[in-house]
Amino acid sequence: MLSTSVIILLREVLEAVLILSLFMASAQRSGLNNRWLLPAIGIGLLASIGYASQLSTIANLFDGVGQEIFDAFSLILLSVLLPLTMYGHFIRVKENSRPAGKLYALMIGVTIIAIAREGAEIYLYLSAFIPSPELRNSLFAGSAIGVGLGFSVGALFYFWLGSFKEQYGLRINAIIASLIAAGMILQACKMLIQADWLPDGQVWDSSGLIAEDSVLGQLMYALIGYEASPAPVQIAAYFIVLLSSLAFLFSGLYQSRTKAEKDVNHPQARNNHAA
């Protein structure tokens, strides 16, 4: 029970926490505050309860694969919104005057979707077992360990992201965001395969090397979408999203840099004229 609780809580918390850490670190670089965070988490948790309570209705849509389709849809949405949010941060790092309303909206939106997804499973799991008193100790101990591990990794991840100088920090943020987005598309494909919307298959099996239910496996799952035995479709989608997201974000970095260089050069030129 303890082990199970750790795995379920860790897996769900870790996915959301890594995105939050990435956002918080990016917000710091682009000069945004973290006031959006608590309301977004609160709404996300409420949405997760709502999602969980509507799950039976959702599950019966699309001939019984509604859960997979819904999940895949939210994952695809996240894997698009996540690079977009990061792009917004990159632009704003160089142009601090730019209004941040849309950026806040994006971060809040991604946070709510991510927490609603992850929170729903935690809610279902906890509400299934809290009524049985003989399981309570191991349930709570396991949940505490799982949540504690998740938040600890998230906090260190946040500080790690913040420890780089700006130009490297932004590149690392771009890479991490792309990896997370690609991992999400991998999961989305898994759901679509499960719903028989995409063909199944197996390219390799590395479960002997890193088991998916180990702590390391959970961490890699949340960070780079690790899967021990992926299908060809999953790998293809993974690399398509990874590369296009990287290209998109690095073009954003490059654009904002050239723009910043122009901004720096311009007043100099004017000064020369004046002189």
Partner: peptide, 9 residues
Amino acid sequence: YELNREKVI
């Protein structure tokens, strides 16, 4: 993990 399936019922 072997079948790569997960679904809440």
